[in-house]
Design a protein around this nucleic acid. Structure first.
Lengths: 206, 206
DNA sequence: TCAATTATCTATCGACTACTATAAAAATAA
DNA sequence: TTATTTTTATAGTAGTCGATAGATAATTGA
């Protein structure tokens, strides 16, 4: 990662890097990686294309910074949600409801950037990098579940993550928040039923 | 719909329309609407761009025909699945498992074209048309559920449809079939739990 | 002041996008 | 044959894509 310069020798930059990243984040979140062009990015940032490239290197490197910023700020509710409740059951219930809330909170940034920002993306490396961020979230969920259900953690985490992707897709389809919330509650009840009823062994066979 | 000419007066077309649609379907399903260009479409079809436009009108009109063909053939398992079982519970369970199977059957056409073919698509009309196909499927599911649970049909259909979108997204993320299947079973159990346990809003116990 | 450094701008670059004007080719109807 | 109709291929259109070359402006260190 490039070190941030507090002050340097040359001509000072006339725009704020963090604000530029935030602007790019809004656009990428709104329409996805491929659908946002460098021309629009630089225009909304109030700079020209060469300034954007001098500051970030390329469109994909800018997106990388956007993803990092996204998980640190906008995505902060997720680790908070799964760490809050005392039981795994409570954590997942909270996770689903928080997701329904977060994914539909802003009509201009529906769903999750990590989950849907690179759907049908043509840049293979960008897709892969985005997939790594998804895997990190999946791991986080699995480790939380493993504290109570180590045998079924992988399988249950896959279920939970699939629900999150469904909620994000529904949000991006402009389904209303109330609908996401009711779906989240049913999904949470399904999780609860599965860990309480007669499913003590791993069903997943690789 | 434009009438199909069996034989006409002019120069005969030297390629098969249905095969061309099937080819376009493969490409659109694989990478989404925006990521497939007319140049590639016509090249893989073995024709030139003007022939494609003469036959289909535009890229978006070709996609419309692809969607219709998709729901009639590739998507035929869905109405079959929800009509097969005697109970709604069995139908939904079958629906989820069939979806997990169908969405991961072909490594080159992962997930559902209707659910994910226009994610992050820039053509607003194409997005809307695709959304209409999704709504039709949602209606189909809701009406099936309404035969037993009319009061909760809308809510339950939204849950079911969200699961389908999650499964499609997971498939497109190359999650293995076994994982989709275990997720589908948990989701089906959640559905069952919800219609049997403490949610007897519609008292239609047979 | 003056060199070094960095960011800014204008003006592109080649490759790609969906799409089409034009005319030749290939069939049928008269 | 001749006229009509339709599909074909060639060769483009204007516009957008991500990215950059080159000149200029604005700062710091010496």
């Amino acid at each position: 990662m490039v070190a941030k310069k507090i002050s340097g020798r040359g001509r000072p930059r006339k725009f704020d890097l963090d604000r530029a990243v935030a602007t790019a984040k809004e656009l990428f979140h709104q329409r996805g990686y491929d659908s946002v062009g460098v021309a629009e990015l630089s225009q909304v940032m109030g700079i020209t294309a060469p300034s954007l490239y001098a500051a970030f290197g390329s469109k994909s490197q800018l997106f990388e910074r956007v993803l990092q910023d996204y998980v640190r700020t906008d995505g902060g509710w997720l680790p908070a949600a799964i760490a809050q409740a005392e039981t795994v059951e409570g954590s997942i219930s909270c996770l689903f409801e928080c997701a329904a809330e977060a994914y539909s909170a802003n009509p201009l940034q529906l769903g999750c950037l990590v989950l849907d920002g690179t759907r049908n993306c043509t840049d293979e490396r960008v897709c892969q990098r985005s997939a790594e961020f998804r895997q990190a979230t999946r791991d986080l969920i699995r480790e939380r579940i493993a504290t109570e259900f180590p045998e079924q953690a992988e399988m249950l985490a896959n279920y939970v993550f699939t629900i999150l992707m469904g909620l994000s897709a529904a949000a991006r389809d402009r389904r209303p928040k109330a609908e996401l919330l009711s779906t989240a509650r049913i999904a949470a009840a399904g999780f609860s039923a599965h860990i309480q009823d007669g499913h003590p062994q791993s069903v997943n066979r690789t």
